[in-house]
């Protein structure tokens, strides 16, 4: 009885969560433009998507933006964690608190305040401003991923390297960094996902003529719904799903690629403040 109720409850939850997305996916294969009836299976919308130059342009921008912002955020975030390791406990928790704020802050507030900042500084909106914004909100995710690994790292391996004659930088790159690689990769992928995913902050900091996929979808929807958008949304959903899978299951942890063996069970908790976008 109890299990039966449990199953019904679980089913309801799953339907509630995934039915909208399933609907979207089904409609992306519907040959009829109507949302009300099934006109037969087609891949036309997907084909149309790939020949739509504007969308493909937004796609390339999105990938480039996500890659570049994630890369820069990963470097900065890892450097920040390294610095924090040498801080006193109290200072470190203060800095951790501060870096967590952008993650918990409502996107719309972050977006509007970034926009106001750029306006005040008279920076013309465009790729650069969006890139800066994405780096800003990506850094906390890198820190969130790298910091716990740093904590459980055997601090004395770094000292052992110094002891054996290594210069501090050499010791960091040969001993500390390989140990952090798994967590850094997770941080990078998470940042990449967050950047792909973002709409609100991009919307407020983009300039004319600049579009990512999500802002493109938004402006298309305003004009009138085109099933190509369903196809595009389906692809985006699957890509993000795939990335999250990689972030959480870290297939590179178990299977050593080359000689890098990272043995950690640290799970990165995805506290997604960006679920709504």
């Amino acid at each position: 009885m109890k299990t039966a109720l449990g199953r019904i409850y679980l089913t309801l939850v799953l339907i509630f969560l995934y039915a909208p997305i399933a609907t979207l996916m089904i409609l992306s294969f519907n040959s009829s433009k109507s949302r009300a009836h099934w006109g037969g299976f087609t891949l036309d919308w997907y084909l149309g998507l790939f020949s739509n130059e504007e969308i493909m342009d937004a796609f390339r921008t999105t990938i480039f933006l996500a890659f570049l912002s994630a890369l820069i955020a990963t470097v900065l975030g890892t450097a920040a964690c390294t610095g924090m390791q040498f801080m006193k406990r109290r200072d470190r928790s203060i800095i951790m608190g501060i870096t967590n704020i952008p993650m918990l802050n409502a996107d719309i507030v972050t977006g509007v305040s970034l926009m106001l900042l750029f306006l005040a500084a008279r920076v013309s909106m465009g790729f650069t401003t969006v890139l800066f914004s994405h780096i800003t909100f990506n850094i906390p995710y890198v820190i969130l991923s790298v910091m716990p690994r740093y904590r459980e790292l055997n601090r004395s391996t770094y000292e052992a390297a110094l002891d054996l004659g290594a210069e501090p930088l050499y010791a960091f790159f040969t001993v500390v960094l390989p140990d952090l690689m798994g967590a850094i990769l997770s941080g990078f992928l998470m940042s990449f996902t967050m950047s792909l995913d973002d709409f609100i902050i991009t919307h407020f900091t983009q300039g004319p003529g600049f579009d990512t996929l999500s802002t493109k979808i938004y402006s298309e929807v305003k004009k009138g719904i085109n099933p190509e958008i369903y196809a595009l949304s389906t692809i985006m959903f699957l890509v993000v799903l795939l990335l999250l899978f990689f972030v959480n299951y870290k297939p590179w942890v178990k299977k050593p690629a080359g000689k890098i063996i990272v043995t950690t069970k640290t799970q990165v908790v995805v506290t997604s403040g960006k679920g709504g976008s």
Binding site: T157, E159, D179
Partner: peptide, 8 residues
């Protein structure tokens, strides 16, 4: 104390 071998 904790050996501090380089695990990789």
């Amino acid at each position: 104390q904790k050996y501090a071998l380089f695990p990789h």
